[in-house]
Structures are given as structure tokens and as C-alpha cells.
Design a protein around this nucleic acid. Structure first.
Lengths: 344, 344
DNA sequence: GTGAAAGCGCTAACAT
DNA sequence: ATGTTAGCGCTTTCAC
């Protein structure tokens, strides 16, 4: 039933050592025996037991991936990028969801240590502030790369999108479209990504010679509801904004829904742009402008970075590598009052 | 640096066997030694090497999961369900994407065999017609459960949604709303799920005493484009339909987009319902009625079924178990011309 | 270019 | 309730 290298060795009157070398394409094994071994292996339907191999060699060719939830489009897309490239490089993906909880994160890391993954890719849970559990990987010599959600202070490589630039570009776009009183709906500011977008917004205003008006910044919790609340707040003002940059697309969706209810026309009366390029953006009415975070590329880059770390184990891992991806503007109806836009 | 049970055994003047048993909570080990072992393990920061454990025991506590793509919402959601319950049961998920290709599927299965997963959950790639590569798992004694996309002929347990019933319910709903000339846009009919939905459609018409009109069935390829093409076809007819049941939501989306362009009012002039309950459904205008496939539940049920098979290895695995989940109707604006509907 | 021997860390018979 | 012994299947020195 189960064929091992011992069976192959016996049949060929070789030792298991030689068979193992032949299967691993060892340079000092003659081509003839290699051929014989490989052929017999195929004929006998031999399959290497990777558990045994891993135990001896210490390599599992498996990497652990922690995401908040596979249900979130964004992370599904990143995982898609990771798995594709990992696969072509002979690595497998062990998938864990943190559900935004530090406790689950901790469990994942312990499991990864137990199964001796060769490396870990992770996006930090919203709940997590202290990341010492991640540092345990380091102490065990397991390379770690953060993607999307990372921590600034620590010396861990990461792949993120340039949120500052994204915020800047989004705001600049609204300015170029002739909007002048531009508001921002932000998110939990202890998360760097939201903070960066806010700063990009401010910076774009400065660059245009417009003073930041704190009353035009609404502090929300990143949800459809937050967008609706923001509209209520803004359109209760004596002088409401004529443009809104929302920190992400669900917030922007709330803005659009509430604006419709109030009879505020988009993009004529109010320009709207979000962030994330969610799949619904192009299907709603009006279609929603947004900043694409290059999710699949992010996954690929994160894996490539991790792979480098895996191979350079011995060398200085202290160099701080941070890959920063350019956000890509996706301008649609919700913010385009100056051009003819593709009909829905 | 790395602590093994030998270190624990030495410190406590016990054998590795006893330590192993203590750590595994073996019934015949005294509470006192258990306590001592566990405490020392914690103190020395011991972590079981699961590779070694797996090699010896033959169990990896890992299951392989094959999905077409993590980028597809539906599968992300199912994976969410699988991972959650697997995790609470002490199982890890090895994730593979088939990209709808038989070749990748084959690779995934070989890998799963090599790493000795305890079981496999899979959704068959669109391209795949011959599933003998899946049967290899069986021959190696690795349990397999299909979810969503399964094959009827073979004797493999599966968890699917009742597509026939879903098609029936969707069509029936349109009838109840007073639509009389109801069309259907179908998909690749070699896939059972699409075939079942078509039959549900036909059956609902029969039950209402309406003859099936073949000219009202459009054969599409499951895409936004297919929906648009279908509208062109239907509204080129002398007597166009007044209701459309689309085989899934992207097709329905195409219908809505094309209808808007043609000035066909929804739901007044044309009722539309899709299938899948995609996340965009409730955000488009008009919001799209659809049939929910209970994705998270599907993942949970699939795992539970697999777990049973893993534990019953020796027993007859020949019984054909097919869990069929009820689709859940999500009626929204696109099909509701008789009731007052929540505004967007 | 191949063999001999050891061992990765754990678990499971079989003892007692 | 614990010890003895063996071995899961592979890789890897160290020989020659």
C-alpha cells in the first residue's frame, strides 16, 4: 500500500541514502541510477513523505498566513496573490483567521511554531496594540513579514500601500474637479493606515493653499453607518462641504446612500471618493471613485520578501525592509463633475 | 534553544514516554506527575514538535481545502466557515486554489497526499469533468467531502445548497409578484448547480400551470455580459418577458445595467432576481433580489461531515452522505412591485 | 558515486 | 502508574 524509499532501495539493490539523493537530484549521483530510481518511483507510485522529510531537514515548505477574515474581500484577494506565487515556488499556505482578536492571533502563532512553518505573513488584528506575541516568531528564528496592517516602531519587514499618498491623491482629485470645501471622514486613528490617509488629506489641502478646517473632519468607525452619520453632521452645518473623501468604501457608500435620501446630487452638488476599490464600487449608482490598494500585488510582494528572508536566515535580518506600493486611482461617476463619464 | 520532551524527562527523572503521556493527558498517568510535567513544560517554554508527532502518529490535524479562487467572495466566505470550526476543533487549514484548472487541482491533491493531511474539502474546478484524481485520495484512505460544486455520479459525500429549490423559489416569487412571462438566463449546463436551477425554474412554472417557453430561456456564460446580451435578445422579441430569473447575481447585474440603458423600469416593467446573494446586491439601485446560499454554514457543515469521516475511518464509508442546505430568499427592490419596499 | 550509521522528536506496543 | 524498546521515513554526516 504505502511505498517508501526502502522499497525502492531494496528493488534496486541500493541504500536508502542513495535513493534519497537520487530523488533530490544530488550532484554526485550518476545519471543512470537517478534515472533508474525516478523510473521505479513512478512505476511504484512512490510519493515522498513530507512529514518525515521535514522532521529530518527542518524545512516544511509551508508558510503561515494570518488574516482578519477570509470573508473580507480585500484579504481574500491578498491571499489569492500569496497562494499563487507560493504555489509556484513550492510552498504551501497554512491559513488562519484572527477575527480581529489578539487571542486568536496568539493561537495562530503558537500553532505556526508547533508545525515549524518556514515563515509567516500577517496582517495585524484591529484589536491588537501590543505585538510581543509576534516577536516570539523572531526568537524562534521564523521570519515574519507584515502586509497592509503593520506597526511602525518595530523592526519587521512589511508590504503596505502608500496610504498617505492615497489620501493625498484622492483629495487632490476632488480639488481638480473644482470642489473647494472638502471634508474627510476618518477611522480609528490608532491604526496607522487611517492616520496616514488623514495626513495625506491635510497635506493636499495645504499644497492647494487651503487651510484645514477641523470641523470638516468627522471621526467615524469605518462603516456604512459612519458615512450616514457624517452626512447628517455635515449637512447640519451652516456651510456644508461640497466634496467628501471617505477613509474607505463602506463609509463612502453610507455617504452616497444618505445623500440620496436627502436629495443631495452626486457628483454635481457633492463629490465623493472612497478608498479600497471594493468590488461594489463600479456597480452602485453613481459608481464610486476610489483608491485601489493593489491587493494581489501586495500578496505577491509579501511572499517574495518572506522568501528572501527565509533564504538569508544567517545573514543580517536587521535591515528594515518596507515595500510601499503605489495606490492606483479609480475615478468614477461619484467624483467626476467636469468630464463626460461612462454611463452605468 | 529548542526544548524537547527529553529535556523535560531528564529534569524530572522520568522517561520520554511518561512525559509524552502526561502532556497528552493520558488517563493512567498520576495527577501529580501530570502537574509537574505541565508546569515544567510551561516554565521551560516547551512546545511540542508537531512534525515529529505526526510522523509517529500518522495524524497531522491538518486538512486540505481546494477552492477555485480566494478572490471570489463566495469561496472566501465558505473558507471563513471552514477555518473557524476547524480551528475550534484543533485542525489547521492548508489552502489551495485551483484557478478553475484541473492541473492545479491535481497538484493540490498530490501535495495533500505528500503532507499527509487528515482529510480534504474541495469545490470542483469548472474545467474539471473527469475526477479520477480526486479518487486517488480515497485509495490512500484520505476522506474527501465536496462542497458547492460536486459530482452526482460518484460516491463522495457533499454539502451543497438545494439549487433546484432555489430556482423554484425564485421563480415562484416572481409569479407571486404578478409577473407572468418569466424568462431564465442559465449557465454552463454541464455544471449540476446550473442545471438544477433551470429545472427548479421549469418546475415552478409547471406548478403554476404555465407552459415552459423555450424561447424564454437564454443560454449564457455566467457574467455581466451574459446578462446584457440576454436583455438584447429578450427585448428584441415580439413579446418580451416581464420577469427574469438569472442563474447568478453577476448575470442579474448585467440585466439591470442593460435594462437601465434601455429605459426598462425595474421592478415595474421587469422583475429581476438573481442567485448567490453577493455583497453588492443590497447596494446597487435597484437593490437586487437573490437566493442566499448560506456560505458560512456550508463551510461549517462540510467540515463537520469531514470530521465524522476522519473518525469513522474503519467503518463503512460507502454510505452516501449528501447534506443539502436550504437556500434563503432575500427579496429586495428588483422584484417587489407589490409591496412597499425599504428605500435604498 | 555509493554505503553505513545515526538520528530528527515523538508515540505506542509491550512490559512490569 | 511508569519504564523499555522500537520505529515512523527520511536526510545527512562520515566514510571509502
Amino acid at each position: 500500500m504505502k511505498v517508501t524509499i526502502q522499497d525502492l532501495a531494496a528493488q534496486l539493490h541500493l541504500t536508502t541514502a542513495t535513493v534519497s539523493r537520487a530523488l533530490n537530484n544530488h550532484p554526485r549521483i550518476s545519471d543512470s541510477t537517478k534515472k533508474a530510481v525516478v523510473e521505479l518511483a513512478e512505476k511504484m507510485n512512490y510519493r515522498r513523505n513530507r512529514i518525515a522529510s521535514s522532521l529530518r531537514s527542518g524545512k516544511t515548505h509551508t508558510i503561515g498566513v494570518i488574516i482578519p477574515s477570509a470573508e473580507i474581500n480585500f484579504f481574500g484577494s491578498v491571499v489569492h496573490g500569496i497562494e499563487s506565487i507560493a504555489n509556484t515556488n513550492g510552498y504551501n499556505i497554512l491559513l488562519y483567521q484572527s477575527n480581529e482578536s489578539t487571542e486568536y492571533e496568539q493561537k495562530a502563532i503558537e500553532t505556526f511554531i508547533d508545525v515549524r512553518v518556514d515563515g509567516v505573513l500577517a496582517s495585524i488584528a484591529k484589536e491588537t496594540t501590543d505585538i510581543t506575541h509576534y516577536l516570539e516568531l523572531k526568537s524562534k528564528g521564523i521570519p515574519l513579514v507584515f502586509f497592509d496592517r503593520s506597526k511602525d516602531m518595530v523592526n519587521i519587514p512589511s508590504v503596505v500601500v502608500d496610504d498617505f499618498k492615497g489620501g493625498y491623491m484622492a483629495t487632490q482629485h476632488l480639488l481638480q474637479q473644482g470642489y473647494r470645501r472638502i471634508a474627510h471622514i476618518t477611522g480609528q486613528l490608532h491604526l496607522k493606515i487611517f492616520n496616514d490617509r488623514l495626513n495625506g488629506y491635510k497635506s493636499a489641502l495645504h499644497a492647494a493653499g487651503i487651510e484645514v478646517d477641523e470641523s470638516l473632519i468627522y471621526y467615524g468607525n469605518v462603516s456604512i453607518e459612519a458615512g450616514k452619520e457624517a452626512i447628517n453632521y455635515f449637512f447640519g452645518m451652516a456651510e456644508p462641504p461640497d466634496g467628501i473623501f471617505a477613509v474607505e468604501d463602506f463609509t463612502a457608500l453610507g455617504v452616497i446612500k444618505a445623500a440620496k435620501e436627502k436629495g443631495i446630487s452626486i457628483p454635481e452638488q457633492l463629490g465623493v471618493i472612497g478608498f479600497a476599490n471594493e468590488s461594489f464600487d463600479e456597480h452602485i449608482t453613481p459608481s464610486l471613485s476610489s483608491m485601489d490598494q493593489q491587493t494581489v500585488l501586495m500578496g505577491r510582494e509579501a511572499f517574495k520578501l518572506l522568501l528572501e528572508l527565509i533564504y538569508e536566515k544567517e545573514e543580517v535580518q536587521l535591515k528594515k525592509v518596507n515595500v510601499v506600493l503605489e495606490p492606483i486611482a479609480r475615478f468614477r461617476q461619484s467624483s467626476m463633475r467636469q468630464m463626460i463619464v461612462n454611463k452605468l
